[in-house]
Design a protein around this nucleic acid. Structure first.
Lengths: 112, 112
DNA sequence: AGAATAGGCAACAAAAATGTTGCCTGTCAA
DNA sequence: TTGACAGGCAACATTTTTGTTGCCTATTCT
């Protein structure tokens, strides 16, 4: 497996993505704050945060008995850069543009 | 679950990401072409491509008995937009910048 | 028509992920 | 120092995922 496996694996779970959403809305929350409203045990949330931290999507900072969590958007930026060419400017603005391009390519392969 | 679940689930598998890499390198490949070199049965690759197509990451076009696969980068762009603010320009250029910001925030909470 | 090619579907076993409960350590306040 | 609070670790059962094998239909070529 490649190194980015942890990132994609962490993003695969809906609860973890919701945790990222919460941190995106307000950074620096503790485990208890993030658990509130998630209808899951504190231990489960703790492990989810551990997965996110292991993937580098969340950075933590401990202060006394509290642990603050921060969103790190860098791995997400890398996902974007992997399949979207920033130089040749692929048609990513709308699906309609892509479909148009597909029709053209298909005409090259199998002309009408 | 949300609607984007299929996309993240599709990206969670390393073999599927490799298929996207291959399509990114050369679009419009058939199932046989994509299977070559992947050390997996054709049926397994077929199901992986089905997952990618179901998530909208791959668009297909059938011509006779052959099926061509094309990469659709739109869902990946949406992932990027979800957690990276394009207006306020968060510090996503380097992890160093983020760490610096985290130090500053921590000083606000727990001054030295 | 007959053979070869491209792809699809379903059932099965093996492997991995998820959430729970129970118990533990460290920190803060009265 | 005693009790309350924040968080961590491990074992367990349940569910999901993954790849294989076997068999099927549709299309192309001789």
């Amino acid at each position: 497996m490649r190194d980015d496996d942890a990132v994609f694996n962490a993003l695969a779970d809906g609860s973890r993505r919701e945790l990222l959403d919460r941190l995106y809305a307000r950074d620096g929350q503790t485990l208890r704050e993030l658990t509130a409203g998630l209808q899951m045990s504190r231990q489960a949330v703790s492990r989810h945060l551990g997965v996110l931290e292991g993937a580098g999507l969340v950075v933590t900072r401990r202060s006394g008995r509290e642990k603050f969590h921060f969103l790190n958007p860098v791995p997400i930026q890398l996902i974007h850069d992997r399949w979207i060419d920033k130089y040749t400017e692929r048609p990513v603005t709308a699906l309609v543009d892509l479909k148009t391009e597909l029709e053209q390519r298909h005409d090259l392969i199998d002309p009408p």
